[in-house]
Simulated assay, not measured.
Amino acid sequence: MTTATRAEPRATPKPMISGSHSFAELFTIRAFLIIPFAALIAAVPLTWGWGLTWVDIGIAAVFYTASTLGVTVGYHRFFTHGAFKAKRPLKIALAIAGGFAAQGSVIGWVADHRRHHAYSDREGDPHSPWLFGTSPVALARGFWHAHMGWLFGRDKTNIDRFAPDLAADRDLRAVDRLFPLWVVLSVAAPAVLGGVITLSWWGALTGFLWAGLARVSFQHHVTWSVNSICHMIGNRPFASRDRSANFWPLAILSMGESWHNSHHADPTSARHGVLRGQIDISARLIWIFEKLGWATRVRWPNQQRLGRLARS
């Protein structure tokens, strides 16, 4: 006599949303969206023709490059998609560098982005431009939502569902809690450097405005353009489940993130610019880390997989 094996009950999936942002959290988020942008608008007439110096440009370039790579190599390719393994000092450095971009703490950023990939351009995607329809009005609304409107919402992505591995990492929890400090340093350090290099309070002020606030705002819009423009405009050489597209004009400013169709076709790849002539600065930095022994088990593009994904 045999007995039927009882099937194990399926675990109930954890909810996608874990609650709502508090008033204080919403106020902080909106302040970090609005204040740098206001500074960018104010800095142009304030310093046009005589206030902007090569010192400001140099400091801004250094902070822009380092913090953008902290997001693209760290937040995105390493923490979100596991495109490589990193030694502990590199892991911590990438998490801190990403915080200097003032785009969110590392664990929350990763949770939002993993949710984006799980529901890309479908209901549940936190920033798809296609959620409201395809009419001109709907697309205008969708562009605003994908670019920055979604950041004004109250919903909080459930970290227990989308980033439990990061939440369990003691180092990352510490870096995550200190996110406000990284933002303060991101705008204060350029002011200090500007003042020290020029030996003037005016150098400190222009460093704060240009290399601090204005640089952060410009950086925000480059990143947000990947969410908005790169899901609306560009070419799609690879098959994916969404409307992600490659948009070459943003390739250098985004450090290779605008090869977005390639990325969505093969999300865990360490290189997004996989076709001839596609510049991918982030991939080159990962290559350097690998050569130095700081990064291991790098997931470079699989040409056979890409061949299967290529549109005929």
Results as ranks from 00 to 15, higher is better:
Ala7Met: 11
Ile281Leu: 14
Ala211His: 08
Asn246Met: 13
Ala43Asn: 10
Pro136Trp: 15
Val71Gln: 02
Lys91Thr: 02
His76Leu: 06
Ile34Asn: 01
His263Gly: 09
Gly124Asp: 14
Arg308Tyr: 03
Tyr75Ser: 07
Ala191Asp: 01
Ala191Lys: 03
Phe143Lys: 07
Val216Tyr: 08
Tyr119Gly: 02
Val184Lys: 01
Gly124Ile: 09
Val106Ile: 15
Ile35Arg: 08
Val106Met: 14
Phe32Asn: 08
Phe143Asn: 02
Arg10Ala: 15
Ala61Met: 08
Pro36Tyr: 09
Leu285Ala: 03
Phe162Cys: 01
Lys156Pro: 00
Ser269Tyr: 04
Pro126Gln: 06
Gly19Asp: 08
Thr12Leu: 11
Val71Ser: 01
Thr68Gly: 09
Ser244Lys: 12
Ser258Val: 11
Ala97Leu: 15
Leu52Phe: 15
Tyr64Phe: 14
Ser262Gly: 13
Arg297Gly: 08
Ala4Met: 05
Leu285Lys: 03
His260Leu: 13
Asp280Met: 06
Phe289Thr: 04
Ala191Gln: 07
Lys87Gln: 07
Ala118Leu: 09
Ser269Ala: 12
Ser20Met: 14
Leu309Trp: 04
Thr80Asn: 06
Phe78Ile: 03
Ser244Tyr: 05
Thr2Met: 10
Val184Cys: 01
Ala86Ile: 02
Gly194Ala: 09
Gly70Asn: 02
His117Thr: 01
Asn235Ser: 11
His76Thr: 03
Arg284Gly: 06
Ala118Ile: 00
Asp266Trp: 04
Ala174Glu: 06
Ile233Glu: 03
Ala4Ser: 03
Pro237Leu: 10
Val73Leu: 14
Leu181Asp: 01
Leu40Trp: 07
Trp201Asp: 01
Ser135Thr: 14
Asp56Tyr: 03
Asp155Ser: 11
His21Tyr: 15
Asn246Ala: 05
Ile96Glu: 07
Gly99Ala: 05
Gly293Met: 06
Ala245Pro: 10
Gly108Ile: 01
Asp242Glu: 09
Pro180Asp: 01
Pro136His: 09
Val196Arg: 04
Asn246Thr: 05
Ser240Cys: 11
Ala95Val: 01
Thr47Pro: 05
Gly203Asn: 09
Ile233Tyr: 09
Trp130Gly: 03
Ile35Lys: 05
Met148Asn: 00
Gln304Phe: 05
Trp54Ile: 04
Ile159Asp: 01
Ala102Glu: 14
Arg122Leu: 10
Gly195Phe: 11
Val196Gly: 01
Ile35Thr: 08
Ala102Trp: 12
Gly149Pro: 10
Ile279Gln: 05
Ala61Tyr: 00
Ala83Asn: 05
Thr206Arg: 12
His231Asp: 08
Thr80Met: 05
Val137Gly: 02
His76Tyr: 00
Ala24Gly: 09
Pro180Ala: 02
Pro45Ser: 00
Ser186Arg: 08
Trp130Tyr: 12
Thr68Met: 11
Arg305Ala: 10
Gln278Phe: 03
Thr198Glu: 10
Ala245Arg: 15
Ala174Cys: 06
Pro190Phe: 14
Pro9Gly: 00
Trp130Ala: 13
Ile29Glu: 13
Ala39Ile: 13
Ile279Tyr: 11
Ala38Val: 15
Phe23Tyr: 02
Thr80Pro: 03
Asn227Gly: 08
Asp125Tyr: 15
Ile279Lys: 13
Gln303Glu: 07
Trp144Tyr: 10
